[in-house]
Structures are given as C-alpha cells and as structure tokens.
Write a protein that binds this DNA or RNA. Structure first.
Lengths: 224, 224
DNA sequence: CAGGAATGTCAAGGAATTGTCAAAATGATT
DNA sequence: AATCATTTTGACAATTCCTTGACATTCCTG
C-alpha cells in the first residue's frame, strides 16, 4: 500500500510537476489549487500534506488551521524565502516542517519520507536516558551499548531504570525494593544483591566500565 | 519566573520560528546561529539548550563539549534525518536527549517540559553542604575538594555529615557517638578518635586546610 | 617543668556487609 | 502438563570496614 500525498499550491504547473515526480517515487498524489479544493480533497485521507502558505487570495495559515482540525497527518509548508519574517508562526497553526522555495526535488522527497517514517513509528515520544555509552530507552525497555543490544529481564530492567533515573543518588536496599517492587520487602531484601550481580555481569560482557557503584554499608548508586 | 531556553541552529528561519512558538508557550527564548554566538549566549544561564549538531562549518559535538564545560543544564540535540546514526554518539559528549528532524512541535515541547521537570526535581533532592572548598552531597554521599573526589567509609561520612551540619558547634565524643550510631556508647567512645584521624588524613592528602578542630578536653567541631 | 590526663597514631583481629554460586520456587509459554 | 526463563533463597567466600588496645604525643595544671 502506498502513501497518499496531497499537494496544495495555487500554481497548477508546480502541482502537476510535483505530482508527476512523486508518482514515480511510488506515492499516490492528489492536488489542489485553492482552499476549497484542498478541503474537499481531505476526503481521501492523505498521509501527508504539502501546503503552500503564500498563495494569493488565500490565508495559508487559516487554511492550515482548518486542515489541522480535520486530519492529524504531517503538514509540510512550502514557503518563499522572501517571506521569512512572517509574523505568524507556521508551527503555531499545526505545521510540522517547512521547505523554502526553491528546493531540490530530492530534498523534498527525503523530508516526505522522513515524516512518513516518523509518523509510522507511533508518535509516542520515547523517553531515553543515557549514561556514558549506555543508552536506555524507557518506553521500549531496551538497552544499547554502542550498536549492541543488552537484554535484561523485567526486574533487572526495573532496577536499572530506578537507579538510572536517579543517577548519583544512593539508595539502600529497602528503598530500591520499595521503588521497584512497589511495596516493602518482607524479610531481608537480599534479592537485590543477586539482581545487581546479574546486571553487572551482562554489562561487563560488553564493556569494562562500571555503572553501578556499591556504597558500602549503605546501598547502591548509578554512576553519573 | 519562566524558564530560559537557548536554541542553537544555523538556520535563522528555524530558530526564529521556534523562538516565536516557544515564547507563546511561556519560555524566555534566546537564539544563536553559530558556535561563537552560542557560547556568548551562555551568559544568560539558560535552563535548557536545544542544539543542532549538524550545522555546517561547526563541529556540533565539539561545541556540545564546550557548552557542557560551562553549564550543567539539559542539552537536547536536534539531528538531521539523514544522520540518524550519529545521534547516538551525542550522548558521549554530554547530550541528554535527541530529537530527529523533522519533529512534531508538541513532541518537542513535551520533551522540553519533561527535562526541565526532571532537572528541577533532581536539583531539589540533592542536599548539598559546603564549607570552604569542600562540597558534600548528602544524597550522593560524595565529597569533593575542587574537582577531586574524596572517598569516605560509611561511619566516616556519617561523622562528617553530623559535624558539618552543625558547623561551629562543639560536641563531646558521647554526643557524636549518639548522633552517628543512633544509640549510646557502651564503654568508652574511643572509636571516634580513630575515625577522626582517618577523615583528617584523607582530607590532608588533598589540602592542608584543617576542617575538624580539636577542642581540648571537650570534643570536636567543624570549622566554619 | 614534671606528671597526668586527653588526644593522636598504628597495626591487627573480628564483625559486618557484599559478592558468588547453585539450587529451589515461581511464573510464563506452548 | 511439560518446558523454559525468571525470581528468590540460603549457604559460603571474599571483602571492607569497624573496633580495639598498646603506645606515642600533646596539652594543661600544679
């Protein structure tokens, strides 16, 4: 299934040209040369919209707001370079990106592709924590050291997350238990020792760097 | 009081647009379009920095390192779509997060807000005591003299914390024992002598300054 | 300025904490 | 139900640090 693009520009020559080109790139392309037509074509439910905001007789920003209220897809502005100091901000009315005319065709397609990819990659903002060379993606629950992924079990990851989001702070085992398990440890919280060992071992398999520091007689902390 | 943001990107149009938008969100926004300007604008002491690392004629990573050596605030990378793989390296030079262009504005603002929240929290939770050049972080249980960290054992640190938070006051050994151990000393509280010695030795290895003063016939106190 | 009491120094044994490992209990998947 | 991965447990080893006691030094007082 190919992506649907909607191009809105008053210059029919430009829309036709782009349509031709983008069709060859594998997109389904729809065009509109005025506001009314644009709103009408929203019916096809495009995946991305290219919008010229400097159209005569049309308030591009108003149109953008209007479009935005109907669809959630990325909107890419086409703007003339002269109109730089426009008082209204394209972003403020729901635009996602802008390209200044004149532009290279391959730049346009690169940006279109980037937006579509980004859009597909569910737009949940990924919370990422990093320390030194370890990159921890909290929403994907993944851990990378350079190119290599480290696999941790649930508890292991939870402990990493807990310590890492409070990097530098020292926690005794009871606090860690409470923070990760969600309730107080009944007997001794000796489990943590073992999990820490596993975590350290997995990290050590990849790098010599120490991330979890033992604070003797107190607890553990994540190096920052 | 509103947060101060510094946006660094070579595209003036982008910095202007973002400035406009983020101003409406209630931030104080400063912009810079090149490295020199960026370093200069650090003077305003921003709470968060948005940094494009793919600027022409500027080594973004070098700039980041440079910035990091001046300020401790969160640095959010903006990376171009093509150079996605590069973004990972950003963490190595002190970046805190990255957003690939193009991005959704609400994603950007969400991340900015998240970082500022996090920063505020961590700043709040770090209880720090300082005297002369010694900086003691009570939540990290770390002690620094200028750039150098001094490592203390649990009891040693506890004694430092006890004396330092009551700087100037004299305590006899029984009171110190009680305050640090949490219960009264059974026999003589001679242990303290030894701990004080160790503490002094570790500090002396780094500076000649005396921090713990002996009040003969009475006890000890922390100089203020 | 000598004597005694308080403090400083040092080395070493013992106490407490943490690291390690294997095996048992629990939970998940097919 | 059987298998597999994960979590927990407990015993032991390794490590760190706390404490002790003997001795040296300093300080105050007579």
């Amino acid at each position: 299934m190919s992506y649907k693009l909607l191009i809105v520009d008053d210059e029919k020559m430009l829309t036709d040209l782009l349509q031709e080109y983008l069709k060859n790139e594998g997109y389904l392309v729809y065009t509109a040369n005025n506001a009314a037509e644009a709103l009408e074509k929203l019916g096809v439910n495009p995946d991305l919209i290219l919008l010229d905001i400097n159209m005569p007789e049309v308030d591009g920003y108003q149109l953008c707001r209007e479009i935005r209220s109907h669809v959630a897809c990325p909107i890419l502005f086409l703007t003339a370079r002269i109109a730089e100091q426009d008082s209204v901000n394209g972003f403020a009315v729901g635009g996602d990106d802008y390209i200044t005319k004149p532009f290279r065709l391959h730049e346009l397609t690169a940006r279109i592709a980037a937006h579509l990819r980004r859009d597909a990659r569910s737009r949940q903002s990924s919370r990422v924590v990093a320390s030194n060379h370890l990159i921890v993606n909290l929403s994907e629950r993944s851990v990378f050291f350079q190119e290599q992924e480290l696999v941790f079990s649930k508890r292991e990851f939870d402990i990493i997350e807990f310590l890492m989001t409070h990097a530098g702070q020292v926690f005794d085992k009871e606090r860690i238990y409470e923070g990760v398990w969600g309730y107080e440890a009944e007997g001794d919280s000796d489990v943590i020792k073992e999990h820490i060992r596993k975590i350290r071992a997995k990290i050590k398999a990849v790098t010599e760097e120490e991330y979890i520091e033992t604070v003797w007689g107190v607890g553990y902390k994540w190096r920052h």
